[in-house]
Design a protein around this nucleic acid. Structure first.
Lengths: 229, 229
DNA sequence: TATAAAAGTTAGATTAACCTAACAAAAATA
DNA sequence: TATTTTTGTTAGGTTAATCTAACTTTTATA
């Protein structure tokens, strides 16, 4: 059985390595920063997790999760997101309040609890932030990343980045009401002028293709790719 | 903010001191046994809790909770019992499975969470074991203790002890289906022969006054006494 | 490529919560 | 009351997770 701290290290490593889909490894300092500890502390834990065969780590090298480590990390993420969903949907917590409490709840040890919670919530696929909830079998689907301009009408997505970093553009993004990671729905696409109508936080706006192709999104409804090779 | 361990010591001390309503204090060994640690360990913690003004403790003396310590302990009990109620009523856990998981959940730090959970459960007064759930304001009512023979018709209670310890009596208790702490409902009292009809775990039985006066119970419906002087 | 900067490691301390072993005080009993 | 038993305490040690300070390796750059 893993300690809360060990679980947090595995989760942090999963999160860091998911961000850059190519390499799937992270450095000691990077990991320490993610967890809010000093590199020396993270270094000790990396050795310990290697002993337990949960990560691949070599002196002065980057770290990555083993199959078992990944499985454990995904389980923690699953718990976190199921609890977030419960807090949001049943206890009336807001979008931004759920995370902190879920950070504690994700470490409760009881497989029965989490299975029943999943059932109670009717096996949700996404948490209140629009992130994918891994299945009980440990499958974690990664939504396709593309630009808002490429998104299909009727689909739900969220902004995960921008391609244009100019102040003009960013101010415009702000004005339209777009926030990082906030759910967006694509309502329509006018055939006449190609304007894309979207809904963000209950508010409708229309944006140009020029604008949309600079917004990077992940789609929740598009063909999902499994990510546990 | 208290650690999980500190909370457990306060809770154990509350539980031990509630049992004997007279003195409200417990010895070091007793407390250590309750928590499954060695007396030396408990001794260290007692000094620490005294420093924090949560308990009254003097070398070679018994320990008791201060007003603040009692408040904290009751809050832990409140969380424990609300979570038990949630697990039982909404996640389909059985009577005997809830405790272990609630032992973990009771240490989650979020007053909003517990208030919302209370609301979600519709402000319950009793947990699945029939124990009183302290209110948000920290009031913990102690049900009246009496014999089953004295219990009113229609009331809910639970067995907390017996007055006759003979094998014959105990075997009879067992046969009737009575178990310690299990909810009992008093259905009727026959005027003709004074037989008391009770329901335990969905099963109905009739018992004589002679039998009933040897069963010690606490009543959930009788006038409750506050216990936070 | 030599050197400076960044990244990573090691050694030694600290704190919380636990332990064992030895000792001291209080309570029970012969 | 003297002695034994029970109860409680102290001293010293362990483990997990953290830290700081000094050091080493790798990477970037002048």
């Amino acid at each position: 059985m893993l300690s809360t701290t060990e679980e947090n290290y595995l989760k942090a490593l999963l999160q860091l390595t998911l961000e850059q889909a190519d390499k799937a490894e992270a450095g000691t300092n990077e990991l320490a920063a993610q967890l809010g500890v000093k590199p020396a502390t993270a270094n000790d834990m990396l050795k310990k997790l290697r002993e337990k065969q949960l990560i691949n780590y070599e002196k002065y090298g980057k770290s990555s999760l083993t199959t078992e480590g990944r499985k454990q990390a995904i389980e923690v993420v699953r718990k976190h997101r199921l609890w977030e969903t419960f807090l949001y949907e049943h206890l009336g917590f807001s979008w931004d309040e759920v995370h902190e409490v879920a950070e504690q709840l994700e470490h409760i040890q009881s497989s029965k609890l989490i299975d029943r919670l999943d059932q109670f919530l009717n096996y949700p696929s996404f948490d209140p932030h629009g992130d994918v909830i891994p299945s009980a079998s440990g499958e974690m689907k990664i939504p396709a990343k593309k630009t808002l301009n490429e998104e299909e009408v009727g689909h739900h997505c969220k902004m995960v980045g921008v391609k244009d970093n100019s102040a003009t553009f960013l101010q415009y993004v702000d004005k339209v009401g777009l926030r990082m990671n906030q759910p967006i729905k694509v309502l329509s696409r006018q055939p006449y002028d190609e304007l894309i109508e979207i809904e963000v936080n209950g508010q409708k706006s229309s944006v140009s293709p020029r604008f949309a192709e600079n917004i990077v999104i992940v789609c929740n409804d598009c063909e999902l790719q499994k990510n546990n090779s």
